[in-house]
Amino acid sequence: MTASTPQKVILSAQDVAIYYGTKDAVRHVNLDVVSNTVNALIGPSGCGKTTFLRAINRMHDVTPNTRVTGKILLEGEDIYAADQDPVTIRRRIGMVFQKPNPFPTMSIYDNVASGLKLAGVRDRKILDGIVEQSLRQAALWEEVKDRLKTPATGLSGGQQQRLCIARALAVQPEILLMDEPTSALDPQSTARIEDLLGELKKDVTILIVTHNMQQAARVSDTTSFFLIGDLVEHGPTDQIFTNPKDKRTEGYITGRFG
């Protein structure tokens, strides 16, 4: 752990289970996430890691027939409590998706500003400032500062994904969820985004789902290993990769299955 501030649990999953219809995709997950860390969720396809990630910003609310039980506490407050508004939750917990998904009809600038505009920010100066700041955080500013008004789709795949990161950062979330953010990118773009995470965690707590174990080992402070809907093991990344407690974790990280 590299956080210099006293360790604070920002997110806490308590006995979380997620159902698609009657099928349980995730069972009884208990997980604490310390602020300003990068947390990797690993496991074979279909293990429930993405399903779990999407529960954290209540993304399942928009899919019919999906149910989340248990508690997910953001700074001590249950985000699934009846008085919580998913819209507010999603402003506090941003998300970056598998495939870069900029809004194709918007310019680079408008993409980054879109979340702020949704939140009602109209002041040009504030928008300009936050757009620049977010693009700098996403290490994209130097590449796009002269063409902010051009369509976002003119960027390369890797740039588009960094644009999506900037877009998510612009609403200044406390937590950033990343769902295999580099799986559609070439190795070079992947490396750039991995380098970014180390910088980003100064401002935001990151949960990243990844298929790539080297990636998890490179970028994360803690790692959670999921298997068929169960959280098998959770701990500091070093320990998970060098000295896993569970046989199944060891089997997966040494490549015996997965």
Partner: peptide, 27 residues
């Protein structure tokens, strides 16, 4: 309209109406 376009808007804190108006209809 791809699902990830809707989700991109939802993830930024858009309401259903805003998702339709800002993400779906422009696309």
């Amino acid at each position: 309209v791809p699902r990830d376009q809707r989700e991109a808007a939802y993830a930024l804190g858009a309401t259903k109406w805003e998702v339709i108006w800002k993400a779906i209809l422009p696309y």
